[in-house]
Every structure is written in structure tokens, then in C-alpha cells.
Amino acid sequence: MKFLILSDSHSWQGELKPIIDRHKEEVDYMIHCGDSELRGTDAVLKEMIVVRGNCDYGEDFPEEVLEQLGPVKLYVTHGHLYNVKMTATNLTYRAEEVGAELVCFGHSHIATAFAENGIVYINPGSIRLPFRPARTQTYVICEVDEANIRVTFHTIDGDEYPELSEQFERVVKG
């Protein structure tokens, strides 16, 4: 199973669409972790799982999404409600509480992937206003198979960013 994961595009449509078009045939699900600053009716978000970020106004998107997608229990939130700019602790508590295997979040504009207690956390960074690393605009392709979760970071132009990419052993619970 493959996921395209984006976040913090901050009203960019022209830059978001080529990324979606580049990968939509190879992925099973597309996720936007908030701060799209677009309406839920916007065509570019039509096929995406989208959550509300702190810069998204109105009721177009939920604060969080928890879904069983095939064998993967996915949790998506923007992160501002869990203070992710300061610590991942609150988010890890929530992920454990809901029994997630894969957690996608944004807000900090810092591209990262890590595992804790058998849960993989992915912040794809920002395609518009990246903070780190080196202000590189990034997104993620995540591939989950029976044994591993591979997180491959890409630049906005589609080039792989191997310095950030990670592979985690899959810990299937229950």
C-alpha cells in the first residue's frame, strides 16, 4: 500500500497539482495534513484525505482522521492541537490511545520521520514554507508492506531526498 503525504501548502494550487498528478497513479491514498488554506470543494483536494490546520478556516475539514485502510490503521492530524512544535509527546499519547500504526501530521514545517512504540510518525514538511532541513520544499511517498514501512522524502520537483528517507520495521499489533 502506498501513500502520498503532503502538508502546509498554504493556498498553493498550481504547485500542489503537479505533485498529485505525478503520483496519483502509483499511490493508493493521498493525504494532506492541513494548512492547505483551500476549500473542501477545491478540485485539487478532491481525491485526498484532508484535515484542518490552524490556518484553515470553516468546517470543510475534520480536525483528525482515523481510518483502517486495508491492513494499516492511519491517524492524520495537523498537529497544532498537540503542540508538535514543542514536543511529540502529546501526539504519541493520542496515537497510542487510538491504536494507530501510521501517523501523519504537519504544522512545524519540519520534514521528519520517526518510530516510537511500534508507531511510525511522518511529517512531510512543507511544499511552500519549509523550515528544515535547509528550507527544502518536501513531501513524502510512504510504502507499507507486510514487513516494513518505507518513508521516501521528495523535493517539490519530484527528486528523492535520501538524507531524510527512512525505513522502519513494521510492528503489527493485535
Rank of each mutant, 00 (worst) to 15 (best):
K2A: 12
K2I: 12
F3Q: 00
L4M: 14
S7V: 02
S7F: 03
S11L: 08
Q13C: 13
Q13K: 12
L16V: 13
L16G: 06
I19D: 07
R22M: 10
K24Q: 14
E25W: 11
V27P: 00
V27T: 03
V27K: 10
D28E: 10
D28T: 05
Y29G: 01
M30A: 10
M30E: 06
I31T: 08
H32R: 02
G34F: 04
D35C: 07
E37G: 15
L38Y: 03
R39N: 14
G40K: 01
L45A: 13
K46R: 15
K46P: 09
M48V: 12
V50R: 03
V51Q: 09
G53M: 00
N54K: 08
C55S: 14
Y57E: 02
E59W: 10
D60H: 10
D60A: 05
D60R: 03
D60E: 13
D60N: 13
F61E: 01
F61C: 08
V65M: 02
L66T: 06
L66E: 05
L66W: 04
Q68E: 15
P71D: 15
V72R: 00
V72D: 03
K73S: 13
K73M: 07
L74D: 03
L74R: 05
Y75K: 01
H78E: 13
G79I: 05
H80L: 08
H80I: 12
L81I: 07
N83L: 10
V84A: 03
V84H: 00
V84M: 03
M86Q: 15
T89G: 07
N90F: 15
N90P: 09
T92K: 13
Y93H: 13
Y93Q: 06
Y93G: 09
A95T: 12
A95K: 03
E97S: 15
E97L: 10
V98D: 14
G99H: 08
L102V: 07
V103P: 01
C104M: 15
C104L: 05
C104H: 07
S108K: 04
S108H: 07
I110W: 04
A111V: 06
A113F: 09
F114P: 01
F114R: 02
G118N: 07
I119G: 05
I119A: 09
N123A: 08
G125P: 10
S126C: 11
I127E: 00
R128L: 08
L129K: 04
L129E: 06
L129N: 07
L129V: 08
P130G: 08
F131G: 12
R132I: 05
R132K: 15
P133D: 02
A134W: 12
Q137F: 10
Y139N: 05
Y139Q: 02
V140S: 04
I141C: 11
E143A: 10
E143F: 01
A147M: 11
I149N: 00
V151L: 04
V151S: 00
V151A: 05
V151H: 02
T152E: 11
F153L: 04
F153I: 06
H154D: 08
T155Q: 12
T155V: 07
I156R: 11
D157C: 12
D157E: 15
G158F: 06
D159E: 15
D159L: 07
D159Q: 08
E160F: 07
Y161P: 00
P162N: 05
L164P: 03
E166C: 15
E166W: 04
Q167I: 07
F168Q: 02
F168P: 01
F168C: 05
V171C: 09
V171I: 05
V171H: 04
V171P: 00
G174R: 13
